Amino acid sequence: MMTNLFSSFDPSTSIFNMPLNWSSVFLGLLFTPYILWAMPSRWVLLWTLITSTLHKEFKILLGPNNSSGTIMFVSLFSLIMFNNFLGLLPYVFTSTSHLAMTLSLALPLWTSFMIFGWVNHTKHMLAHLVPISTPSPLMPFMVLIEMVSNLIRPGTLAVRLAANMIAGHLLLTLLGSTGPSLQLGLLSLLILSQILLLLLESAVAIIQSYVFAVLSTLYASEVN
């Protein structure tokens, strides 16, 4: 029996005292070479359609002058989605439920956007601190509010992804731990609810990776 519900997220797999949990982050890379040399299957064609659609959407968000940067955000979407889905498999470490992983993605992106914007487009970044038609007495307060909202962006990106992944996994773990003590009739309802929750978590895995990539794209488009 678990002493702590959150212990299901603890890194515990190791060989010769070497942690292996974070190696699950690289499992998604195993699918990439297969697409390059194998005969295209329906899954490969579906994934190609998804990535081409994302390329077109991110190109609109970034603008025609920065369309070459879409590959970075499509790769970001792919990395997060692969790790979200791998976390749904039994006994696979969910890296995206840890702030160490999500902050490692959000913080460097936001920092690079800010450095690029303030170095190359200083007037444009200063204009963003004061919304249009702001009354003069409110301008100092609006500058403070805009600065705070800008500074917390990497934190909100990281916490949003990690919290959504943790919430579903905790619910699955909590319901699954009650299985041995239930009768046969209630056990069938529990299995049905677990299947429905897995379907919901699959949708959350796609939606959260898409939200993370889209918000990162919007943050990048603001500094141009």
Rank of each mutant, 00 (worst) to 15 (best):
Y91L: 08
S95F: 02
Q194L: 12
T94R: 06
T173L: 10
W47Q: 13
V223W: 04
S78V: 11
E146P: 00
A100F: 05
L175C: 06
V204M: 02
V159P: 04
L200M: 03
L189D: 04
S221C: 01
M142A: 06
L46V: 00
F82Q: 00
V211M: 07
T53E: 10
F116E: 15
L144N: 08
I60V: 15
I60D: 10
K123E: 15
L192W: 08
S181A: 06
M18P: 02
H98G: 00
L76G: 10
F93I: 05
K59H: 12
S149G: 13
T217Y: 08
L126E: 11
I166A: 06
L187H: 00
T102R: 03
G28N: 08
L199Y: 09
L107R: 00
S52Y: 12
A213M: 11
Q183N: 12
I71Y: 15
H121K: 15
S14Q: 13
W37H: 10
F113H: 09
L182K: 02
S14P: 01
M125D: 10
N224E: 12
T94C: 10
G179P: 05
P154L: 03
S133A: 06
S188D: 05
Q194T: 06
M125T: 07
L79E: 01
L182A: 02
N150M: 14
L161W: 01
S68W: 14
T70K: 10
S209P: 05
L175G: 01
T3S: 09
S97E: 07
V211F: 12
A158R: 00
G155D: 02
F58I: 14
L30R: 07
S149E: 14
F9E: 01
S41Q: 08
M81D: 06
L218G: 00
L126A: 06
W118S: 15
L187Q: 01
F16G: 10
P64A: 13
W37Y: 13
W47D: 14
L189I: 06
L197C: 01
L105P: 03
S95R: 00
W43F: 08
A213H: 07
S188V: 05
L62K: 07
N65M: 10
E146C: 12
S97I: 04
